[in-house]
Design a protein around this nucleic acid. Structure first.
Lengths: 346, 346
DNA sequence: CTGAAAGCGCTTACAG
DNA sequence: CTGAAAGCGCTTACAG
């Protein structure tokens, strides 16, 4: 037992095989063989064996060796859903990096992608022998439940998810919904629709409620049957959503859409059906994209403040590490707001 | 001297202050105080001092301790330009992760953003005591020169840059240029323009040459004065570029554009000037984006195969680590190709 | 030219 | 209830 665990070659092993000391092997492997005047022949034997046994140095041992010369860094493990790597990870890392520089602290960022639904395979990585803290984005509810079943000896910070057990940074979804409503010109517009998804998260529902409530306050009607539930986010589904809404009488004249990837399809449908934005329709998208910004007319959006979230997550992590506070910290941030032509304002 | 270097608190230090042994302190700090039956009072003193001195465990020491129980991983340092974090890092990491899973190897990814132009500050991180290999994206020419002045004891792989000294993975720019030309319907189109930048990289120039040569072969004329050099990539500059090209007589009827961020401005200008795509004009963009895909008409693009590059970079790194080959390996990959309506084909 | 020892910071049996 | 020792894998003076 225990054989397959430490299958990697070590210096000591090689030294024994060669009848040399570990020091000699180490020196040669580090290219200092000549300067320490190890026999050419010995060097050759060592290098050959290293190649043969596929020697890989243990980075941790090397770094430990350097302790005293250099500060040991704080290591942050960032867990991110594989299918989200493209969208927001870049912004998150950028925000994190900026904050690290600003604070002048010695931090290393480790990124660990995970398969959607399979986060549990990484639970063992959340441990003080691996990193100083974990930031986790994109968890499903089941994954979160699973995560919460255990305790961890380092701070865990959920990104974009609410939790009572761990720390978290998230957008104030209710406020985000309100913001969307405030983008509508209520002097002209009296009816509004919501386009969201069938399997909506708690976050999405809060957004919807915030929007609906704020609309009510402004005298804008949001009828129950104007709340569209789509299956997925594709061009075609966006296109059909417009046709469906057009069948409703009266035709709601402002739409809040909970996903910007539908935008292309929806815009095409509007064009094909002679709906002019913002004359006939106010459009507000959740999530920003170039598509929205450069469309003619440009489209208003409300987005998650990812960089901000990274900054706050770092704040929490450093605070916890310094004070060993044990109550969970929650930071709710305001959404980012891009007012554009699609809501009739410049 | 050496005081500010190791300012961090260590267990030994705390043990001395408290008149205890390191073992006792360690046990309590790991929450095993009760199970090992350390006096409550002692535990309290230890925890208080830890808080006061802001004790941070040395992750490397902890991980080394675990050696034998768990495999030491290969650590890949990914250096990425801060201002590119949003665009291609996600795809690169996704590609890297996929390849890691496919190969079933034990790899950790460390991401180190750097300020554009300031890569030299990270040179010391390219060392076997920090990681098993470095992948570097987005270097400027000066940065690359600076990097090449030194030797490193781990494999260095440049992403998207050519080099004789290190390994590299890059797109075959000449072939990419040819691909762009092949998107043009030469039975109908006889003239082509190139829109690029004033300060163009060697890569961009190769792309241009590949395009020009392939056009010649197809009987398409690319006149010198149809080669536009723009200052930067913005909406306005894209808009003006179209006006400039319209002033040329004859008006070139296919354009290869070396950057997709100009797209929005160019499309707006075409629309404003009654230029109909693809009837009057074939458009091919380098770099893909949603904007191109969902435009009406959808726009053809040629893009860097980032995920592929990540895979090949991993291949190289593992190969080098196994065989200690010392000749630089270069992998040139074919671009990714999105044929769309803007070149008149579906 | 090479070996033996010390030590990086930490944890874990073990002894008392 | 606590201490002393051993050891994780590696490197670096030092001795010979």
């Amino acid at each position: 037992m225990g054989e397959n665990q430490s299958s990697r070659t070590h210096i000591k092993e090689m030294a024994e095989k060669l009848g040399l000391s570990a020091g000699t092997v180490s020196v040669v492997l580090n290219g200092r063989g000549d300067s320490v005047r190890i026999a050419k022949e010995t060097q050759k034997r060592i290098l050959e064996l290293a190649k043969e046994m596929n020697y890989q140095p243990n980075i941790y041992a090397r770094r430990l060796r350097k302790a005293g010369q250099e500060q040991a860094p704080i290591i942050i493990a960032v867990f991110w859903r594989k299918d989200n790597l493209n969208s927001r990870l870049g912004k998150f890392l950028a925000g994190l990096y900026e904050s690290i520089v600003k604070r002048g602290c010695n931090v290393e960022i480790m990124v660990q992608p995970y398969e959607p639904g399979e986060f549990k395979e990484h639970l063992h990585q959340i441990h003080s022998s691996r990193c100083s803290g974990a930031m986790i984005g994109g968890l499903t509810e089941e994954e979160q439940v699973c995560l919460e079943e255990q305790d961890y000896d380092i701070p865990v910070i959920l990104v974009g998810r609410n939790t009572e057990k761990f720390h978290c940074v998230l957008m104030d979804n209710y406020r985000a919904g309100e913001k969307c409503a405030s983008a509508i010109d209520s002097s002209r517009i009296k009816t509004a629709a919501v386009v969201s998804f069938h399997k909506s998260s708690r976050a999405a529902r809060l957004l919807e409620v915030g929007f609906t409530m704020a609309c009510q306050d402004k005298g804008i009607t949001v009828r129950e049957d104007w709340k569209l539930r789509l299956e997925r986010s594709t061009y075609e589904i966006g296109y059909h959503a417009v046709e469906e809404l057009m069948a409703r009488i009266p035709f709601p004249s402002a739409w809040m859409v909970l996903d910007s990837r539908l935008a292309a399809g929806m815009l095409a449908a509007c064009q094909d059906n002679g709906i002019v934005i913002p004359r006939d329709l106010n459009l507000i998208f959740f999530e920003d994209s170039e598509l929205l910004k450069y469309n003619k007319p440009s489209l208003t959006s409300v987005d998650v403040p990812v960089a901000d979230m990274a900054e706050k997550a770092l704040d929490i992590l450093l605070l916890i590490n310094e004070n060993k506070v044990d109550i969970p910290i929650k930071r709710e941030l305001l959404p980012v707001y891009h007012m554009r032509e699609s809501t009739g304002k410049l």
